[in-house]
Amino acid sequence: MLDLSSFNNLQLDAIREVGNIGTGNAATALSKLLSRMIEMDVPKAELISIYELAEHYGDPTEIIAAVFVRSLGDFACSLIFIQSEEDAGLLVDLLLRQQFGDSLPPDLPQEMLDSALSEVGNIILSSFLNAINLLIGTRHQISVPGVAHDMLAAILDVVASIFGQMGEMALFVNTELKLDGADGKAISGKIVMLPDPDALELLLRKLQVL
């Protein structure tokens, strides 16, 4: 199996480029959905110790909103869309206002808000993944999205436990999307992709850097 600790810069660059293509597609899809300009960051491909995941992303006890999907197929991976609670609220508000206009009822139940959030997250993450599968010529099947509002560290346990079985490091592709909310307030969200260890090997081979 692939030894994550022996990754070279060429391989990390190739993976970052894959992240770039995914992010571009995700930003386009979000832009169409919300009819807004979306700014995207240059993605990073990083090898991180699974024991320090939460610290790497921020305060382990910070409450965040996360949308999680699993992709199965040749290129199996986990994808998470992470936002601060405030930003997730603004994003949902933006989407719902677009649908309902000013007739948007003020006290929507949490399930309804979560359903909207999971839909936005799903569109972002599936677009990200579609671009990658198209690039490397693999087929995939994506799960329904799951939503959670909880401590950053608790959320990241999900991915830490997948990688923990295999070793101590995980490869993350990180990127950030930014847009302006309804009242001009900036909204941002992080896309995090973690290819399963077997999928990484396939990805590198397809990119001809293995």
Partner: peptide
């Protein structure tokens, strides 16, 4: 933390 209905999710 997450429930993904209809998916094989032992790892969850």
């Amino acid at each position: 933390m997450f429930a993904l209905p209809g998916t094989q999710t032992d790892f969850l």
